[in-house]
Simulated assay, not measured.
Amino acid sequence: MGLVAGGVADVVGGFGAWRMWWMLAKNDVIRRYRRSRVGQLWLTLSMAVMIFGMGGIYASLFGTSMADYLPHLGTGLVLWGLMSQTINESCSSFTDNDSIIRQVALPRFTYLLRTIARNLFIFAHNLIILPVLFLVTGTVIDWHILLFVPGLLLVLANLAWIGYLLAILSARFRDIPQIVASIVQVAFFVSPVVFKPSQLRGDHPVLILNPFASMLDVMREPLVGHLPSATSYLILLGLLVVGWLVALAFSGKYSHRVVYWL
């Protein structure tokens, strides 16, 4: 319990330093497009091109209409961008902030929150595409959209403990980011981003054993006017409890050593 308490203190301290990680995350996005004429609009434009480009190709391959397929693909790509980038960039949350960590005594979780906030800013830019996409395809928005916010919070809570573990491990073992990037890349093809879950049977291992499928389900289904599966909520809640217990114990034991590994 002592280890878990140490991890809890670090997480609480990280949220307490919200001014620091909020400012750093905002500056990360601004700095990336500082000398660009279009600026941060490139985030939205590049995602829109990908959605409509892939939509035309895969709708033809799957033999379905663009109006039916584009909302599925568009929401899937936008949400996948949030999940995959957060996980990949979490690996370098400590190594990218090594100069700050060596000089300023901040809770380690502060740097992970910087990563999550930065990707939420990017996600907010890409989210603008969806209302336009729904209008073009005639997708009906109903009360199910209210479930998007709790679904998003549930996913972010899971991404936080995953990123916390990966950040610590990556500080110690520098091969971890490359391994994680490869796993995430493979996960894209076995997750229902391009294909629809309805193309598989409900108890297919790709849908049950793949946590990314559950994450997509609780966020995407409300956006397209459907009710997420209760199984997806149960899977994510189970991962949330077990994952945070492991992450907090791991952090309580090893997070103070991060500065020596950088």
Score class of each variant (00 low, 15 high):
28 D>C: 11
236 L>C: 10
85 Q>F: 14
106 L>W: 07
98 D>I: 14
196 K>S: 14
244 W>K: 01
71 P>E: 05
16 G>F: 06
236 L>H: 12
84 S>F: 11
149 V>S: 08
152 L>E: 02
59 A>S: 15
63 G>M: 01
160 A>Q: 02
173 F>L: 11
169 L>D: 03
252 G>D: 01
257 R>V: 12
149 V>M: 10
2 G>W: 15
93 S>T: 09
49 V>T: 13
249 A>V: 03
197 P>Q: 01
95 T>I: 11
181 A>V: 11
150 P>L: 09
225 G>N: 07
232 S>I: 08
3 L>M: 14
201 R>C: 07
160 A>K: 02
55 G>C: 04
261 W>T: 01
100 I>P: 03
56 G>D: 05
191 S>R: 05
138 G>D: 06
16 G>M: 05
14 G>R: 03
123 F>T: 05
46 S>H: 15
151 G>L: 08
186 V>N: 02
169 L>A: 12
249 A>H: 09
198 S>C: 09
121 F>L: 14
124 A>V: 11
260 Y>L: 11
118 R>C: 10
103 Q>I: 10
76 G>E: 06
156 L>G: 07
81 G>S: 06
130 L>N: 03
83 M>K: 02
195 F>H: 03
202 G>F: 12
151 G>S: 08
102 R>V: 03
190 V>T: 04
15 F>P: 02
165 L>K: 04
23 M>I: 15
201 R>Y: 13
139 T>P: 09
257 R>K: 15
124 A>N: 03
109 F>K: 00
248 L>F: 05
12 V>W: 12
258 V>L: 05
33 Y>R: 01
236 L>R: 10
100 I>D: 06
161 W>N: 00
168 I>Y: 00
132 V>M: 11
62 F>R: 09
19 R>V: 13
245 L>G: 10
162 I>W: 10
84 S>Y: 11
52 F>S: 05
233 Y>K: 07
51 I>S: 04
85 Q>K: 13
18 W>F: 15
13 G>I: 05
186 V>D: 01
217 D>I: 08
217 D>G: 09
215 M>S: 02
230 A>M: 14
35 R>T: 14
218 V>D: 01
159 L>V: 10
143 W>H: 11
99 S>L: 13
154 L>G: 02
93 S>Y: 08
246 V>Y: 11
223 L>T: 05
94 F>I: 02
262 L>Q: 11
249 A>I: 04
142 D>G: 12
59 A>M: 08
131 P>V: 09
